[in-house]
Amino acid sequence: MSGSTDAGLPASLILVGAGKMGGAMLSGWLAGGLDPSRTGVIDPAPSAEIERLCAERGVALNPASPSAPEALVLAIKPQGLEAAAPALAPLAGSGTLVVSVLAGKTVANLQQRLPEAGAVVRAMPNLPASIGRGATGAFAGETVTGRQRAAAEALLSATGLVEWVADEALIDAVTALSGSGPAYVFLLAEAMAQAGIRSGLPPETAERLARATVAGAGALLDAGSEPAETLRRNVTSPGGTTAAALAVLMRENGLPALLDEAMNAARKRAAELAG
């Protein structure tokens, strides 16, 4: 099918997998102008929220005999691609743009399992896409046309920032940084609250302070253009309490080294999922 919406979104789309990420993207697309009457969702066990969204907006949920759409978005678990591929292959026609958010699954993996697919874009969004504040890294396969890349950009930017990378191998680094990154931030808030409790604060007070601190710092970082390093230096008085804490966090085996190790582990696991 050809054509697109005024917002640059595909004229027709099928989403495969409507879990937290797929559901967040679908909500963003519909809000951005995607035609619900030409949108389908395939999910063998949709949540009540997805069932309600599809019913309210007129999106076809598990249509009986869907035809190949302009865009086919894959948001299932990467381990499920092999089993799902035979049913998905007829939906990936020569004019179909396949947008995959499957961690580790390369363009070659996808083209092997969906041999008629005309073009493939790999993308790695993250959970804040559910509130329109996502960060997505994307790579366009060599057969992706300018129009298809624009359609993918419109889809992905509906839920936040999009950064394109020229080397597909960098998608694994994106996965380790921004794809898994929200969990690192949540762990930081969790650890701060627990440390506050051990310092004598009531649990509810410590949790509220930690949550507000992380959220506020993130909002401050987002509000301006200054690098994180500059903001860190601005709030660190020489010889003060923050400097004493950072001396611990930034020591040789401190937070930067732990994050390097953690991201390397995530990147390695993403590469393993290509098999």
Score class of each variant (00 low, 15 high):
Thr241Gly: 01
Gly196Ala: 06
Thr205His: 05
Gly134Glu: 13
Gln111Thr: 09
Thr213Glu: 05
Ala217Pro: 01
Thr136Met: 08
Phe139Thr: 01
Ala274Trp: 08
Gly239Lys: 09
Arg113Val: 06
Arg269His: 10
Leu9Thr: 13
Asn62Ser: 11
Ala173Gln: 07
Leu13Tyr: 04
Ala173Phe: 03
Glu163Phe: 04
Gly141Phe: 09
Pro115Trp: 10
Ser94Phe: 01
Gly160Met: 05
Ala60Cys: 07
Gly95Val: 05
Ala119Ser: 15
Gly8Ser: 13
Asp35Thr: 06
Ala11Arg: 10
Ser130Arg: 15
Leu155Ile: 15
Ser178Ala: 15
Gln112Arg: 15
Leu91Ser: 09
Ala140Thr: 06
Arg267Phe: 03
Pro63Tyr: 13
Pro90Arg: 09
Val144Ile: 12
Glu49Gly: 01
Asp6His: 07
Tyr184Glu: 01
Leu114Trp: 04
Leu161Tyr: 04
Pro227Leu: 12
Val120Thr: 06
Gly33Trp: 00
Glu261Asn: 04
Gly80Val: 12
Ala215Gln: 15
Ala274His: 05
Ala119Leu: 03
Thr143Asp: 14
Glu116His: 12
Leu258Asn: 09
Ala83Leu: 11
Gly254Glu: 06
Arg147Cys: 01
Met21Asn: 11
Ser2Gln: 14
Ser65Trp: 00
Ala243Cys: 01
Leu88Asp: 02
Asp172Glu: 07
Val121Thr: 06
Pro238Asn: 12
Ala265Gln: 13
Glu261Met: 10
Met263Pro: 07
Glu229Leu: 15
Gln79Gly: 15
Asp6Ser: 14
Ser37Trp: 03
Glu51Leu: 08
Asn62Val: 07
Pro66Gln: 02
Gly132Ala: 11
Pro203Val: 08
Asp172Cys: 05
Leu110Tyr: 04
Arg251Ile: 02
Glu168Leu: 02
Pro10Val: 12
Ile42Tyr: 04
Ala45Gly: 02
Ile171Cys: 07
Thr205Val: 15
Glu272Thr: 14
Val120Trp: 01
Lys105Met: 14
Glu272His: 10
Asp172Arg: 04
Ala262Asn: 12
Val98Gln: 09
Ala103Val: 14
Val101Leu: 10
Pro44Asp: 03
Pro86Ser: 08
Ala60His: 14
Glu82Leu: 14
Glu252Gly: 10
Pro90Asp: 04
Glu190Leu: 00
Leu30Gln: 05
Glu261Gln: 15
Ala271Thr: 09
Glu116Lys: 13
Arg267Cys: 13
Asp222Glu: 13
Gly240Ala: 02
Arg122Trp: 02
Arg208Ser: 09
Gly93Trp: 14
Leu114His: 08
Gly160Glu: 06
Arg122Ser: 03
Leu249Arg: 07
Ala11Leu: 03
Glu272Cys: 07
Ser2Leu: 09
Ala266Thr: 03
Leu209Cys: 06
Pro203Gly: 08
Gly58His: 10
Met1Ile: 03
Pro63Trp: 10
Asp260Glu: 11
Ile131Gln: 10
Leu81Cys: 13
Val174Trp: 06
Gly181Pro: 01
Glu261Val: 05
Pro63Thr: 09
Glu153Ala: 12
Ser4Trp: 03
Ala60Trp: 06
Ile131Trp: 12
Ser180Thr: 07
Glu226Leu: 14
Asn62Tyr: 12
Ala89Thr: 04
Thr241Pro: 00
Ala176Gly: 14
Gly32His: 11
Ala55Val: 02
Thr145Glu: 06
Ile131Arg: 11
Ala265Gly: 14
Val73Asn: 01
Leu114Ser: 13
Pro125Thr: 09
Ala212Trp: 08
Ala265Asp: 11
Glu190Pro: 01
Lys105Val: 10
Asp260Asn: 11
Ser4Glu: 12
Ala103Cys: 08
